[in-house]
């Protein structure tokens, strides 16, 4: 007994090192479980309160810029409205309004956004009480892709940014040809993401528009992702296409959270298939 005790005492530093590192590794591998706990939600809430104060100060200085954007958006909407009024499309427009919309937007403010990590997250000022649920899409006020909600507390939610190497791959399509592939980020440049799984014979040119497609269940169809910047030829049968993001991820403030209606219903149907 004494010798065991002496042994433990002698190598206590190394033993402690091994124990602590093991605990850390266990935590790392159970990270996703932890993120769902009440405690993590509470920390998220406290941080939300602090960052909201901080963001309100920052927003004050960006009011002018924000105003300009709103005016431009307004103008754009007016133009679109005019087009509808002056053409026959008004009838189909009315029909669309009468039908139940497939999705609705919730407005939210970004109270924290990072772009300097490999795993970037965004915190928004609306949460489960405002109807935000995980796996809702986040898009900018001019309908460009930003990220997806992963965690909510009562009044705040955090979203995984498209600039996150752990982002669950989702599909994007080339608007001109309709070919679709998966989008991910390789962590190198905050202005480009990668489009994979496009066959090497397919017709792609630099400058093509890349948008979301209808099957993601997270984003509505035709939300702008970016434009083709470079087509890399890789071994195998697929291209790896660099897509220049249309949204500058560093200057986000007002965003929409997309609530796709009947998503659960569609998902259960998909599962049953």
């Amino acid at each position: 007994m004494g010798s065991i005790l002496r042994f433990l005492l002698r190598y206590r530093t190394i033993i402690l090192f091994v124990i602590l590192e093991s605990v850390a590794v266990v935590l790392i591998f159970n990270n996703s479980k932890y993120q769902k706990t009440q405690f993590a939600a509470y920390i998220n809430h406290v941080k939300g309160v602090v960052y909201e104060k901080y963001a309100s100060i920052k927003q004050y200085f960006a009011l002018e810029e924000e105003n300009k954007k709103l005016i431009a958006e307004n103008l754009d909407l007016h133009n679109k409205l005019n087009k509808y009024i002056n053409s026959d499309t008004i009838r189909s427009g009315i029909r669309n309004i009468l039908n139940r919309p497939a999705y609705t937007y919730k407005t939210a403010k970004i109270i924290r956004n990072s772009t300097n990590k490999q795993q970037n997250f965004i915190i928004l000022n609306i949460g489960s009480e405002q109807g935000v649920r995980p796996e809702m899409g986040v898009i900018s006020s001019d309908e460009k892709i930003i990220g997806m909600i992963v965690k909510t507390s009562a009044n705040y939610s955090s979203a995984i940014s498209i600039l996150n190497t752990g982002f669950i791959k989702f599909s994007g399509k080339l608007k001109r040809t309709g070919n679709y592939g998966t989008i991910s980020w390789n962590g190198v440049n905050i202005n480009t993401v990668q489009l994979h799984d496009i066959m090497q014979q397919s017709d792609v040119v630099v400058g093509d528009t890349v948008t979301t497609n209808q099957h993601s269940g997270v984003f509505p169809e035709n939300i702008l992702i970016g434009t083709v910047e470079k087509i890399n030829i890789k071994d195998g049968i697929f291209y790896e296409i660099d897509v220049k993001l249309s949204q500058d991820m560093k200057v986000l403030q007002n965003v929409y959270v997309v609530d796709i209606h009947d998503k659960d219903e569609i998902n259960t149907l998909l599962k049953n298939e």
Binding site: E21, A24, I28, N31, I43, Q119
Partner: peptide
């Protein structure tokens, strides 16, 4: 630091200990 930041729980703990 792990708990307060939204990263991977345990990553900072492991790095600091090492």
């Amino acid at each position: 630091v792990d708990i307060i930041s939204a990263g991977i729980l345990g990553a900072h703990a492991a790095a600091c200990t090492a």
